[in-house]
Simulated assay, not measured.
Amino acid sequence: MPLGPSRRALLATAALLPLVGRPAEASAAAPKTAQQYYDRAARLAGDDPVLRALVKALSPGLSMPETKPLQPLRIFDDVAVLGTSFVQATALLTAQGIILIDALGSPDDAEKIIVPGLRAVGADPSAIKYVVVAHGHSDHFGGAQYLADQYGARVLMSRADWDLIAAERPAHAPRRDLVIADGQRLTLGDTTVTLHHTPGHTPGTVSPIFPVRWKGRRHTAMLWGGTNPPAATAAKRTNLASVLSFAATMRRAGVDVELNNHGGADHGLTRIEQLRAGTTGGENPFVIGRARTRRFMEVMETMLRGRIAQDQEPSPARPAPACC
């Protein structure tokens, strides 16, 4: 169900509190300047490559790398990643068809990357039943209408982002189809995906939680739907409230797998290549455990607090933390 007014107020209040859930003495000594927040995030990240990549991705002034082809790969028994080095679509391969999270940037991307990519990992693109658009930027919804036209896939997006793309990109938007409610469950075959509203990156960003299997063993994955902080301070505060709320949801769900639709933001591209090369000793580098998924969200929270603090400071953009 959509968030009610009381729930929204609670989240907005939480966004203003200093590092909630920490001991009182830590809260009293919480950093106040942007650079202090950034430095704290760097300390939280330590030498963890996943967390270090997140710190870098959330630092001000980040420049995007050149886009290169990405060979498709099953990163779990029942999950495949397709796309480029810039943006990826995630295919959940169920007993009754495919749930695709995001659809890349254009019909051409869908035809030339998603369709052959699914075939390359042993899946049939005609089995795509649903396309879940994590947020309303064209690099995530651009191929959705092609997949709907070719295979009859249903396209899902939050109401806020259906409205966003209708206003900003009407010529490129898929036809309005299914609306994602906050906490909605989407079941296909033996897989149930829970779709959570995490606004901030866009007004209607959605982040799913779903089961995955690695060598037959079940894990619980999250996919953060939109990483780069929005420009407006008020939107950053909304983003922060979403991080706090989703972190609590992840804890309740027992999430131990972290995924992202921009693999450059979380060391994901490197982890994909490690799996492809077979250099992980049989382990899956996306299974980072419950403690590290909680730390991932804590790093994101701290970096967002820094970005909000920086908005309120007269000084120019701060340098990225020294760790990254």
Rank of each mutant, 00 (worst) to 15 (best):
residue 219 H to F: 08
residue 155 V to Q: 09
residue 209 I to L: 15
residue 176 R to F: 04
residue 191 T to W: 00
residue 164 L to Q: 11
residue 209 I to S: 13
residue 183 G to F: 06
residue 186 L to F: 07
residue 178 L to H: 03
residue 167 A to F: 09
residue 218 R to E: 15
residue 184 Q to G: 08
residue 161 D to I: 11
residue 159 R to D: 15
residue 181 A to C: 08
residue 208 P to H: 11
residue 193 V to Q: 00
residue 158 S to Q: 03
residue 195 L to R: 01
residue 197 H to Y: 12
residue 209 I to C: 07
residue 217 R to T: 14
residue 183 G to S: 04
residue 180 I to P: 05
residue 217 R to Y: 07
residue 220 T to E: 12
residue 156 L to Y: 15
residue 154 R to G: 12
residue 184 Q to A: 15
residue 199 P to Q: 00
residue 178 L to T: 05
residue 218 R to G: 11
residue 175 R to W: 05
residue 210 F to P: 00
residue 185 R to V: 10
residue 174 P to E: 12
residue 166 A to F: 08
residue 165 I to S: 03
residue 202 T to P: 06
residue 166 A to V: 03
residue 176 R to V: 15
residue 179 V to T: 13
residue 174 P to C: 06
residue 179 V to W: 01
residue 162 W to E: 08
residue 188 L to M: 02
residue 159 R to C: 07
residue 163 D to G: 05
residue 219 H to S: 05
residue 205 T to M: 04
residue 205 T to C: 15
residue 184 Q to D: 10
residue 159 R to N: 10
residue 189 G to N: 07
residue 193 V to R: 01
residue 220 T to K: 01
residue 198 T to L: 11
residue 176 R to P: 01
residue 214 W to S: 13
residue 159 R to I: 03
residue 168 E to T: 14
residue 164 L to G: 06
residue 184 Q to H: 12
residue 164 L to S: 05
residue 207 S to K: 04
residue 178 L to W: 13
residue 181 A to M: 13
residue 157 M to W: 08
residue 179 V to A: 13
residue 164 L to H: 01
residue 211 P to G: 09
residue 179 V to K: 00
residue 201 H to S: 11
residue 177 D to S: 13
residue 208 P to T: 07
residue 191 T to L: 12
residue 159 R to A: 15
residue 189 G to R: 06
residue 197 H to P: 00
residue 190 D to R: 04
residue 173 A to Y: 09
residue 220 T to M: 14
residue 214 W to R: 00
residue 178 L to R: 12
residue 207 S to F: 02
residue 179 V to C: 06
residue 177 D to F: 10
residue 203 P to R: 02
residue 184 Q to C: 08
residue 178 L to I: 07
residue 193 V to K: 02
residue 156 L to E: 04
residue 178 L to M: 15
residue 158 S to C: 05
residue 175 R to V: 13
residue 205 T to L: 02
residue 153 A to N: 07
residue 218 R to S: 15
residue 208 P to Y: 11
residue 201 H to N: 14
residue 219 H to R: 05
residue 212 V to A: 08
residue 192 T to S: 13
residue 165 I to R: 03
residue 188 L to E: 03
residue 184 Q to R: 05
residue 187 T to Q: 13
residue 211 P to R: 09
residue 184 Q to M: 15
residue 173 A to C: 10
residue 199 P to A: 01
residue 181 A to W: 05
residue 171 A to M: 13
residue 164 L to R: 14
residue 153 A to F: 08
residue 218 R to F: 10
residue 166 A to Y: 00
residue 211 P to I: 09
residue 162 W to H: 08
residue 170 P to L: 01
residue 182 D to G: 03
residue 173 A to N: 11
residue 215 K to C: 01
residue 194 T to W: 02
residue 197 H to E: 14
residue 213 R to N: 10
residue 203 P to Y: 06
residue 216 G to F: 08
residue 183 G to M: 04
residue 154 R to A: 14
residue 220 T to H: 01
residue 211 P to K: 10
residue 189 G to Y: 03
